[in-house]
Amino acid sequence: MKTNEGTMDRALRVALGLVLIALAATGAIGVWGYVGLVPLVTGAIGYCPLYALLGVDTCPNRST
């Protein structure tokens, strides 16, 4: 899997995932908050399957 998320994209995903999970754990938004696992995991590994399907790549150009 080639990384298809840039640094800012990854940071926002991890932050959003952590916020949603914390809200679900405290009971503020219910169990649907555990959907935050998806952006958390995709941000942590740097690969988004939906981006791959749509041909989106937020990584800066690589000089390779």
Rank of each mutant, 00 (worst) to 15 (best):
V14M: 05
T42F: 13
W32L: 13
T7A: 14
L16Q: 00
A28E: 09
G6K: 09
N4M: 10
G27H: 06
D9I: 04
G43E: 01
I45D: 04
A22N: 06
L40Q: 07
Y47K: 13
A44L: 15
L23N: 04
A28G: 02
V41A: 15
L40A: 09
L40I: 11
L12S: 08
A24V: 00
L37V: 11
L20G: 07
A28F: 12
Y47N: 12
T3W: 04
G46D: 09
A44V: 14
G27W: 04
L50R: 10
A25L: 06
V38Y: 08
D57Q: 05
N61T: 14
A52N: 13
V31R: 09
A22S: 13
Y51P: 11
D57L: 05
V19G: 04
D9H: 12
A24S: 06
R62Y: 08
T58K: 05
G55Y: 02
N61S: 14
T3D: 11
L18S: 11
L23D: 02
E5D: 03
L53Q: 11
A44Y: 04
P60L: 11
I21F: 02
V31D: 07
A25G: 15
V38N: 02
D57E: 10
L12D: 07
G17M: 08
L53F: 14
L54D: 03
W32C: 03
R62C: 09
A24M: 02
L12R: 10
M8K: 15
Y47Q: 11
L23P: 04
A22K: 07
L37A: 14
W32G: 02
A52W: 10
A25M: 08
T26E: 07
M1Q: 11
V41E: 01
G33F: 01
V14C: 06
S63F: 13
I21C: 13
V56A: 12
S63M: 12
A44N: 05
A11E: 05
V41M: 07
L18N: 05
